[in-house]
Amino acid sequence: MKKHLSSLDLNLLLCLQLLLQERSVTKAAKRMNVTPSAVSKSLAKLRDWFDDPLFVKTPLGLLPTPLTMSLEQDLADWMQIGNQIL
């Protein structure tokens, strides 16, 4: 079943990008000005959307899965375009 972008909250992509940058739910939450619980819920939605764990907890922080790593540049490009539009 093909998923449509219109059914994805685009704020989740911002959350994913910040998780990639910070490798920490707490640090991403601080940057988004939300609670760590809110980021965890967003991550759960993203995991469901992509059907992938996206990150694995390690003693050094969150380790991105190969899928997440493959999305990193596209997310950065998308954020840059979004900022230009705004």
Rank of each mutant, 00 (worst) to 15 (best):
M1F: 00
M1H: 01
M1L: 02
K2S: 09
K2W: 00
H4D: 14
H4I: 03
L5N: 07
S6V: 11
S6Y: 05
D9R: 11
L10H: 05
L10S: 12
N11W: 07
L12E: 10
L13G: 11
L13W: 06
L14K: 08
L14E: 12
L14M: 10
C15S: 15
L16V: 02
L16E: 08
L16W: 05
Q17D: 15
Q17G: 12
Q17M: 07
Q17H: 10
L18Q: 09
L18E: 12
L18Y: 03
L19G: 02
L20E: 14
L20Y: 07
L20F: 07
Q21W: 05
Q21L: 11
R23T: 02
S24L: 07
S24E: 04
V25F: 09
V25H: 13
V25Q: 14
K27E: 15
A29Q: 04
K30Y: 07
K30L: 14
K30F: 05
R31P: 06
M32L: 15
M32N: 13
N33H: 10
N33G: 15
N33L: 09
V34C: 15
V34M: 13
T35W: 09
P36N: 13
S37F: 06
S37C: 05
A38V: 08
V39W: 03
V39K: 02
V39D: 12
V39M: 06
S40V: 06
S40N: 14
S40C: 07
S40H: 08
K41V: 12
K41M: 08
K41T: 15
S42M: 07
S42R: 10
S42Q: 12
L43D: 03
A44P: 04
A44L: 06
A44R: 06
K45L: 08
K45D: 14
R47H: 03
R47M: 07
W49P: 08
W49L: 03
F50Y: 11
F50K: 02
F50A: 04
D51C: 04
D51I: 07
D51M: 03
D51V: 06
L54A: 10
L54W: 00
L54K: 01
L54S: 08
L54R: 02
F55C: 01
V56N: 10
V56E: 13
K57H: 05
K57L: 04
T58V: 05
T58M: 01
T58Q: 02
T58E: 01
T58P: 02
P59S: 01
P59E: 00
P59Y: 00
L60W: 05
L60G: 06
P64A: 04
P64S: 04
T65M: 02
T65I: 03
P66T: 01
P66M: 01
L67S: 08
L67I: 04
L67T: 11
L67P: 07
T68W: 00
T68K: 00
M69W: 01
M69P: 03
M69I: 11
M69A: 13
M69K: 05
S70G: 11
S70Y: 04
S70Q: 08
L71W: 04
E72A: 15
E72C: 11
E72P: 04
E72V: 05
Q73Y: 02
Q73C: 02
L75P: 01
A76M: 05
A76Q: 07
D77L: 09
D77S: 12
W78Y: 13
W78V: 14
W78C: 15
M79H: 10
M79P: 04
Q80Y: 14
Q80M: 11
I81M: 06
G82R: 10
G82H: 09
G82N: 12
I85H: 03
I85R: 01
I85D: 03
